[in-house]
Simulated assay, not measured.
Amino acid sequence: MLRNREIGRFVLLFVFLATAGTAIVCTISPAAGAVAGGMAAVLLLTALLFTRWRYREISRLSEYLQGICAGQDSLDIRDSAEGELSILKSDIYKMALMLTEKTQLLTKDKRYLAEALSDISHQLKTPLTSMMVMTDLLSERTLTPEKRMEFTDNIRTQLERIEWLVTSLLKLSKIDAGAIEFKEQHVQVKDLINRMIFTMSIPVELREIELKTNVPEDVYLVCDLHWTAEALINIFKNCVEHSRPGGHIGVDAVENPIYTQIRIWDDGEGIDKEDLPHIFERFYRGKNASDESVGIGLAMARSIFVSQHGNVQVKSQPGLGTCFTIRMYKQVI
């Protein structure tokens, strides 16, 4: 403490003033001068003890910050006392807590990025390997025209799958990063449903699926028409892919002062209980997923709805079917 120049200067100044004052008082009364000198010594000792206590508290703060830098995020220096030093402790604790939370989020994002890159590389590896094999086969001169055409079609199919995967990943990344500005359009829900059904009309017809719709004309939704339609198509596609030939898919919509609700349900194979909590996670493939499934569609749909102050829930029973419920809230508090 005494190595501090400010403290040294304070002590020297205090001793000089106390000595000068005591000398002046002694010229008037030696007894009064002795008392004044004693009081000056007591005041100096009290100031030094108080300064020493403050230095100890500051040293504790320094050790606390060093512990935080070393990764000890469970330390707590807050106290219930009043004063500038206590306020400083609380502010440092809040700052350390905020930095710890940011560090945890960065670590989580880093882990998520590593997992995402691993999943993406896995999804791209299969079609790329297949195309490399077929490209080698195409170079053989003895290959028949029929086989050459078959391999060419397979390569085209794999390229289309890669293009769809990359496009979907870019869309999902933009949504998660908040880089997409969703428009607030007053959209008729029936128009959205018609777009959804038209896009999937061929798979529905091939599977001979019967559609049941109950969407009143006066049900509206404030949303981005393009992105919301894409999210609904992804959910509807999931229902179509897991419906039996000749099965049924239903779509209905209702509106109230709080939210607009859209339900899409099927009587297909349903979702296993173990898969149900994870179906909106990207790259997750359930037990009943097809070989062509990547696990992006439902994750993208959920991100689109959440970004527009909505949510999507799912209920399902194996062998009985699945029901997706989308709610878009009109006001968010």
Rank of each mutant, 00 (worst) to 15 (best):
I162K: 05
H248I: 14
S121P: 00
R156T: 05
T228R: 06
F151A: 03
N194P: 03
W227E: 00
T126P: 04
V204R: 13
E140Q: 11
I162M: 09
F182P: 03
R207H: 15
D191T: 15
E146G: 06
R207T: 06
L138A: 06
T129W: 08
L159M: 12
G247E: 08
H242L: 06
R141A: 12
V189W: 05
F151Q: 03
M200S: 10
L124V: 01
E230D: 15
Q185V: 01
Q158L: 07
D218M: 14
F182A: 03
E230T: 13
A229Q: 11
P145M: 08
R244I: 15
I155N: 04
F182V: 00
V204G: 09
M200K: 11
H248W: 13
V222R: 04
K147T: 02
L225C: 05
I233S: 06
I197D: 06
I180Q: 07
G247Y: 07
S168T: 00
K147M: 10
R207C: 15
I235S: 12
H242T: 03
I120V: 03
E205R: 14
G178M: 01
L137N: 05
D218H: 15
D191Y: 08
T199W: 05
L206R: 13
P245D: 12
Q188R: 13
E205H: 10
D153V: 04
K212G: 06
F151W: 06
E150V: 00
I202K: 15
E160Y: 10
M200N: 09
I193G: 01
H226E: 11
L128Q: 02
E210A: 11
L172K: 00
I180S: 08
R148V: 00
C239M: 14
K171F: 08
Q188V: 07
E241A: 14
L206Q: 11
E230Y: 14
L211G: 03
R141M: 10
V187D: 07
M196T: 13
K190M: 11
I209K: 03
S168L: 00
C239K: 06
V204E: 13
M132R: 02
K190Y: 03
Q185R: 01
P145Y: 06
T126D: 10
Q123F: 08
L211S: 10
H226A: 11
I155S: 05
L124I: 03
N234A: 08
S173K: 02
I249C: 02
N238K: 10
G178L: 01
D224F: 02
F182L: 05
H122N: 15
H122I: 15
L225P: 00
V204H: 09
P127Y: 01
K171W: 09
M200Q: 13
L172E: 00
E230G: 14
Q185S: 00
I180V: 13
L221I: 15
P216N: 07
S173D: 07
L159H: 04
D218R: 15
V222I: 09
E217D: 15
E208S: 14
M134K: 12
T228E: 13
V187M: 03
V189Q: 05
K174Q: 08
N238M: 11
V240H: 05
N154L: 10
R148H: 04
I249K: 01
E205D: 15
L221C: 13
L159V: 06
E184K: 09
T199Y: 13
V187G: 07
K171Y: 12
V187Q: 05
Y220A: 07
L172V: 00
Q158W: 01
E140A: 07
E140R: 14
L165D: 04
V215M: 04
